[in-house]
Nucleic acid binder design. Structure first.
Lengths: 125, 125
DNA sequence: AACTTATATGCATGCGCATTGAATGTCCAC
DNA sequence: GTGGACATTCAATGCGCATGCATATAAGTT
């Protein structure tokens, strides 16, 4: 096998693994908790932060999401009462996103869903 | 680290690798050839088939795409003159997708783009 | 006739890019 | 130093596009 063919094979393997898990995760999180995979990733980062509060820009740096996608994920979750948006005092361009009580509870539930899917599909699948 | 944490770490790693490569691939293929990553995957499978011809259902089995997404990828490429759709003689529900001369040429060019991206971003990145 | 399979399409949704609007930073003439 | 023009950064939004699900249509199967 040429180097190029190996490279493509590696990519297909990565693509295949990712697709399988991502699809299942998205389905399970949506069905059980009404969350997108991205929503969950965002919520997870917020809950993991001090005081369940994080700057939008900081979340973004940690995630593979566009800025607009993050903005909309936060908007969706705010509408569901999972997070609050508040102005950042030290830099009024910035936004602090805080997980509500309900948001923290949902993250805890959703984490179990995530783990269940990962256990089933991540290893061998 | 707990088993659960390891599992999540593994998933994040997979997600991260995939996102980086996929994003670059999508950008490069779109910019240079007007193709989606999925379009390229589909075109690639067709060109790799005998006579550059493949049944839609067979392509689907090999790809992580929904049936509707495949149908639309083929429609897009047909509109650009990259492939032709023809009725399958033995089963008139089926569709044969054939790469045109232009489609084969574009696949060859796009393959170089794909390889360049994979070389740069797949390994260490 | 009832059922299954192959493809296309209406619909709602999430995404990225480009742009906008607002706040902050920078830098230089005075 | 201070004021004001210009660039930069943060987040939200208009827009077009690809996706998946559910369904429609058409063809084969039993």
């Amino acid at each position: 096998m040429t180097t190029d063919a190996l490279l493509v094979a590696e990519w297909r393997d990565l693509l295949s693994r990712y697709s399988k898990v991502a699809h299942e995760l998205d389905r399970a999180l949506q069905a059980k908790h009404g969350l997108t995979m991205s929503d969950y990733e965002v919520l997870d980062r917020i809950v993991a932060s001090d005081d369940c509060k994080a700057r939008a820009a900081d979340i973004l740096a940690d995630l593979h999401l566009s800025q607009s996608a993050l903005s909309r994920a936060v908007a969706r979750m705010e509408k569901c009462g999972l997070v609050d948006r508040s102005m950042c005092v030290t830099d009024r361009r910035g936004v602090n996103v805080t997980a509500t009580e309900q948001g923290r509870a949902l993250q805890a539930e959703a984490r179990e869903t995530q783990l269940a899917v990962l256990r089933e599909f991540l290893g061998a699948g």
